[in-house]
Design a protein around this nucleic acid. Structure first.
Lengths: 137, 137
DNA sequence: CTAGTTGCAAAGAGTTTGCATGGCG
DNA sequence: CGCCATGCAAACTCTTTGCAACTAG
C-alpha cells in the first residue's frame, strides 16, 4: 500500500533551486543557506529529506568526493525514470546512458546475483570523451 | 629526516587480518571487533592509525561508498581492478560485484560511448536478495 | 633513556530521528 | 478531520585529536 504524497512548497523550492543552478556542486547546507537568503521558509532537516527523495526519484544525483566532504547534489536534467547517469570526475559533466548492454547487465544482476538494481540512483563515474585525452589512467 | 619506526604486534595483527580475509568487505570497526573476538590486545584508534599507514604504503586499498557508509579496506594482493560495489538501499549491506557481464558493459561504454569508467568509484544501488522480498518497487 | 606507539576519552562534522506543531486534501 | 510534512533540538555515526602511560631499541 502506497503512501499518500502531499505537494508542498518546500519540495518544489529545493528542486527548483537545483534546476536553476546546473553544474554547481552544492551540498545540503549550501542549499539551505541559499534558500534562507532568499527568505524561503524552510529548515535544514527538510532540505535533507527532499534531497534524499529527489535522489531516489532519479531527478538529482548525489556525489561523494571523499569521506570528509559533504555530499554534493545536482539536477540531472532528465525526467526519464529508467535512465542511468554518468558523471565525469574531471570536468563534472553529467551524461545520460540508456543502451541495451546496460539492460542486459541489469537483468544479469537480477537473475544471477539476486540484486534488484535501481537505475535512477546508480551513477557511473569516470572520464568523458574530452577529459580522457588529458588524463593518464 | 625520517621518523624511526617501531615494529609492534598491533601493526602485524591488522595487516594479517586483511591478508587472511581477501575479498571481504570490512571497515575499521569490523577489523577491531574481529580482532577483539580473537582476544587481541588492540584499540579502535590504533586500528584506524594502522589502516591509514597501510593505505599510504600501498599494501591496502580503501574504498569510499558514500557519505553514510564507513570506508572499507582490503589487502592489495587480492585487488581486482574490475571490482564494483553494490549497496542495498534498505539494509545498507555492501557487496562486491565482478563478473564478465560487467566487464562487457565497461568495454562497451569505453568504445561506443567514449566513457572511461572507474570501477572503484562506481556504486550500484538497489535491493539485495533479502530485502527485495519486503519491498515493492 | 629516548622517541615512537598505544588507547581511553572527548571532540568534531555531517546527517538522521523524536516529537510536537502545522497544513494539504 | 486524518495524515503527511515540517523543523527544532537531540541523538547518532564514523573518524580524528589530546594526552598520559607504555614499550621497543
Amino acid at each position: 500500500m502506497r503512501k499518500k504524497t502531499y505537494v508542498t512548497v518546500q519540495k518544489d523550492t529545493v528542486l527548483n533551486y537545483l534546476k536553476e543552478n546546473p553544474g554547481r556542486h552544492v551540498n545540503a547546507r549550501d542549499v539551505y543557506d541559499e534558500l534562507k537568503k532568499q527568505e524561503e521558509k524552510i529548515g535544514l532537516t527538510t532540505v535533507y529529506r527532499h534531497l534524499e527523495k529527489l535522489v531516489q526519484e532519479g531527478q538529482v544525483i548525489r556525489s561523494v568526493i571523499d569521506e570528509n566532504t559533504p555530499a554534493c547534489y545536482e539536477y540531472t536534467g532528465c525526467e526519464d525514470s529508467h535512465c542511468y547517469h554518468f558523471k565525469c570526475i574531471r570536468c563534472g559533466r553529467i551524461e545520460h546512458i540508456h543502451c541495451d548492454e546496460i539492460t542486459i547487465l541489469e537483468n544479469h544482476l537480477n537473475s544471477e546475483h539476486n540484486f534488484t538494481i535501481m537505475p535512477r540512483m546508480t551513477v557511473f563515474y569516470g572520464l568523458c570523451e574530452e577529459c580522457r585525452k588529458y588524463e593518464e589512467v
